[in-house]
Amino acid sequence: MSVSRTLLGLLEPGAQHGYTLRQRYDVWFGAARPLKSAQVYSTLQRLQRDGLADLAGVAAGEGPDRRLYAITGAGVYELDRWLQEPEVPEVSATRRALFAKVVLALHSGRPARALLDAQRQAHHRRLREMRVARQRGDLMAQLDADFEMYHLDADLKWIDGAEARLDRLAAHIKETDHDHSA
């Protein structure tokens, strides 16, 4: 997720302080990884440098001055562009690692089926956690849990498909190894 574009979206309704932006971000999007204050302020400085946000005012407080940021016309244009641009479907790093582990396990003669079984169990544990989160959470948490659960379900289907093909995949890897070593 683009933190900078998300902050632009949070700024669009009106000028806000970095502290307020961080709080709103964490409530809506920070369940998995809350933002640190330093990241909010460094992102706001980059947005300002790039002409997408501007300093709308400074208020003195008990601590450091509180800076008020506002989105610029160029920022609204960039936000519109980002919102309308479909996300590129991408296999996550976890899925790529799992694929690599299966291939390397077969390549080395290790038990790939055991690896897939262990991963299946980990996915089922995470699904149970997400079901609890969905039942206990507000609408935002439910939607987030659904997103993860659907992806976990797709991973489980891939695990089942990979397991069904292990013998053929092992033969293919052995054949490929033999062809490249000759």
Rank of each mutant, 00 (worst) to 15 (best):
M1F: 04
V3G: 01
R5G: 02
T6W: 01
T6P: 00
L7V: 04
E12T: 01
G14A: 06
Y19V: 12
Y19A: 13
T20M: 10
R24F: 00
F29D: 03
F29R: 02
P34E: 15
P34T: 14
S37I: 04
S37H: 07
S37T: 12
Q39I: 02
Q39V: 08
S42R: 15
S42A: 12
Q45Y: 04
L47K: 04
Q48E: 15
R49N: 11
L55G: 01
A59F: 05
A60E: 14
A60M: 11
G61H: 09
G61I: 03
E62L: 08
E62T: 04
G63Y: 11
D65F: 03
L68Q: 14
Y69V: 01
Y69N: 04
I71E: 12
A74T: 03
A74P: 00
L79H: 12
L83T: 10
E85Y: 07
P86D: 14
E87D: 11
E87C: 07
E87Q: 13
V91Y: 01
T94E: 15
R95Q: 14
F99C: 10
F99W: 12
A105Y: 13
H107E: 14
S108M: 12
R110N: 10
L116T: 09
D117S: 10
Q119E: 15
A122S: 03
H123C: 14
R125G: 06
R128N: 04
R128S: 06
R128H: 08
R131M: 09
R131E: 15
R134H: 12
Q135K: 13
Q135H: 09
Q135I: 08
Q135L: 14
R136Y: 08
G137D: 07
G137A: 01
M140R: 11
M140G: 05
M140D: 10
A141I: 00
Q142D: 09
D144Q: 14
D144F: 03
F147D: 09
E148F: 01
L152H: 08
K157Q: 10
K157L: 05
W158Y: 06
W158M: 06
D160T: 07
G161E: 13
G161P: 00
A162G: 00
R165I: 03
R165K: 05
L166P: 03
L169C: 04
A170Q: 12
A171F: 00
H172E: 15
I173N: 09
K174E: 15
E175H: 08
H178Q: 12
A182L: 07
